[in-house]
Simulated assay, not measured.
Amino acid sequence: MRRVPGFYELLEARADPNHPNHAQVREWLDDYDPDLIDELPIKYALGRLASRRNAAKARINKGA
């Protein structure tokens, strides 16, 4: 798995109240919760990808 530079360190600081940057990170992240996932935008994006794939497949099959 590729790591996003600084992201995991940010999450560690957010989770550890004893981390020197904890308060600053909590303020900066506001109400961001890495444990919550908004599924709706993901479903829409996957639906768009599936539609494009199906349209391309239909064009290919039409020409065959």
Score class of each variant (00 low, 15 high):
36 L>E: 11
35 D>G: 13
30 D>F: 01
59 R>F: 05
64 A>M: 14
40 L>I: 06
10 L>Q: 03
12 E>R: 11
14 R>A: 14
49 L>R: 14
62 K>E: 04
42 I>L: 15
58 A>M: 08
31 D>V: 13
1 M>E: 09
34 P>T: 01
64 A>S: 15
31 D>W: 09
22 H>Q: 01
14 R>I: 05
39 E>Y: 10
13 A>Y: 00
38 D>F: 09
54 N>V: 10
49 L>E: 14
61 N>H: 10
2 R>H: 10
15 A>L: 08
19 H>G: 04
22 H>L: 00
30 D>K: 12
21 N>A: 13
14 R>N: 12
62 K>M: 04
16 D>G: 06
44 Y>W: 12
33 D>W: 02
23 A>C: 00
56 A>S: 15
4 V>E: 07
49 L>H: 12
54 N>M: 15
45 A>K: 14
47 G>R: 05
5 P>A: 01
59 R>C: 02
11 L>I: 03
25 V>N: 04
41 P>G: 09
1 M>A: 09
33 D>Y: 02
48 R>C: 04
22 H>S: 04
13 A>K: 00
25 V>M: 05
44 Y>K: 13
59 R>T: 04
20 P>H: 05
16 D>V: 02
35 D>I: 04
32 Y>M: 05
44 Y>R: 13
29 L>W: 04
43 K>V: 14
8 Y>L: 11
34 P>K: 00
56 A>W: 08
62 K>N: 08
45 A>T: 11
52 R>W: 04
62 K>P: 01
39 E>G: 09
55 A>Q: 15
61 N>D: 11
51 S>E: 10
63 G>L: 07
1 M>S: 12
31 D>Y: 08
49 L>K: 10
43 K>Y: 11
39 E>L: 14
18 N>P: 00
46 L>K: 14
46 L>D: 11
5 P>M: 00
39 E>Q: 13
62 K>H: 12
42 I>E: 14
55 A>E: 15
4 V>K: 10
59 R>Y: 05
28 W>H: 03
7 F>C: 06
2 R>I: 07
60 I>D: 06
15 A>Q: 07
43 K>H: 13
46 L>M: 13
2 R>T: 07
8 Y>T: 01
11 L>S: 04
12 E>M: 04
15 A>H: 07
11 L>E: 03
13 A>E: 02
41 P>V: 09
24 Q>Y: 03
64 A>D: 15
20 P>G: 05
57 K>P: 02
50 A>W: 08
3 R>D: 10
17 P>C: 00
24 Q>G: 07
56 A>T: 13
40 L>A: 14
6 G>N: 02
39 E>H: 13
62 K>V: 01
34 P>R: 00
